[in-house]
């Protein structure tokens, strides 16, 4: 493994399933120390891309290299410095948490005394000390997910690939793991996270890539993605009483591109890159609406995600 090799380098990767389903062509180059948030709707090709990165699926075209090695042809070399935490994984239920970590460490060729130390350390790190000897079959979803992260860290990986790592965890655990991932990245590790929890990704990721219909539709730093979408202003409107008639009238306004109702609020996307709160307030009052509040809405990753889907991934 050369030190200047990208942890992940994907080039024009294509995977076909039958006549109609094609993933790709997708290209991504991930540099060391990045926390890369991999986004996409269900069925976009996220899992297939990850499985190609792990050598579980062979691409039809293009290439995937992990630290310069092909994970399908040489998994032993390519995955030596990789940890993988799948989403709610299926572990063998006859293992206890401790046994699973010990077995995983054996697969990395870690010696027995180092294994014992590592297992103890990881069990403590993920907060499973009281359940270390319990069979995994008796674990809750959150505990399984903690164990999934622990087994991915057993070899002190330089590259950590995680699929929905905080799914099923309570808020306290989510914060704990977010801090853990930040601390791992600060130690110089590269982290690749696939997730639907966009607020989590926004808080954590330094870089973002989004896949839709099998193709990468955008990638860049988190800030650049948010700035790109922040060019479109949006306003959140809160009414005394929700009224479908007013929503329809807002939609008809010339400077409004879209208005959608979310609980007791109307989320209004503008066609113009100006703060039009005063104009919108006036138009709502003129239409008979009773305003409770208006706020200019800064673009979030969720907005970027929805906007991309709305455009059909182009």
């Amino acid at each position: 493994m050369s030190s200047d090799e990208h942890p992940i380098s994907i080039h024009k990767l294509v995977k076909r399933y039958g006549k109609y389903t094609t993933i790709g062509p997708a290209s991504i180059d991930i540099e060391r120390k990045w926390i890369f948030g991999f986004l996409g709707p269900n069925g976009a090709g996220k899992t297939t891309t990850i499985r190609m990165m792990l050598g579980l699926v062979r691409p039809n075209e293009g290439s995937v290299k992990i630290f310069g090695e092909d994970p399908f042809k040489s998994p032993a070399r390519a995955l030596e410095n990789v940890g993988y935490a799948p989403e709610l994984p299926n572990f063998q239920t006859f293992f206890s948490g401790e046994d699973l970590l010990d077995f995983t460490a054996k697969l990395y060729g870690i010696g027995s005394s180092e294994r014992r130390r590592k297992v103890r350390e990881l069990i403590e790190m993920v907060g499973l000390s009281d359940h270390a000897r319990k069979k995994i079959g008796k674990y809750s979803k959150g505990m399984v997910q903690r164990l999934s992260v622990a087994q991915a860290l057993v070899n002190d990986p330089e590259l950590l690939i995680m699929d929905e790592p905080t799914l099923g965890m309570d808020p306290v655990a989510t914060i704990h793991f977010r801090d853990l991932f930040r601390s791992l990245a600060s130690e110089g590790r590269t982290i690749f996270i696939s997730s639907h929890q966009l607020d989590e990704i926004q808080r954590l990721a330094t870089h973002i890539g989004m896949i839709n219909r099998g193709q990468m539709v955008f990638q860049g730093t988190t800030d650049s993605v948010l700035n790109a979408f922040a060019k479109k202003y949006s306003i959140e409107v809160e009414l005394e009483r929700m009224d479908d008639g007013i929503v329809e009238k807002i939609k008809e306004l010339s400077y409004v591109r879209e208005a959608r109702v979310d609980a007791n609020r109307i989320h209004v996307t503008l066609n113009e890159t100006r703060d039009l709160r005063a104009d919108l307030a006036e138009d709502i009052i003129r239409s008979g609406g009773r305003l409770r509040g208006l706020s200019l809405h800064k673009a979030t990753l969720e907005d970027a995600f929805i906007e991309t889907l709305r455009r059909g991934g182009s």
Binding site: R51, L54, G55, L56, S74, P75, A76, R77, A78, L79, E80, V82, Y84, P86, P89, N90, F91, Q92, T104, L107, Y108, Q151
Partner: peptide, 17 residues
């Protein structure tokens, strides 16, 4: 069938081994 193959085969283990 149980979905456990992915986890083992995502470790640095040759398929032949």
């Amino acid at each position: 069938d149980q979905g456990t193959a992915d986890l083992i085969l995502s470790k640095p283990l040759s398929r032949v081994s």
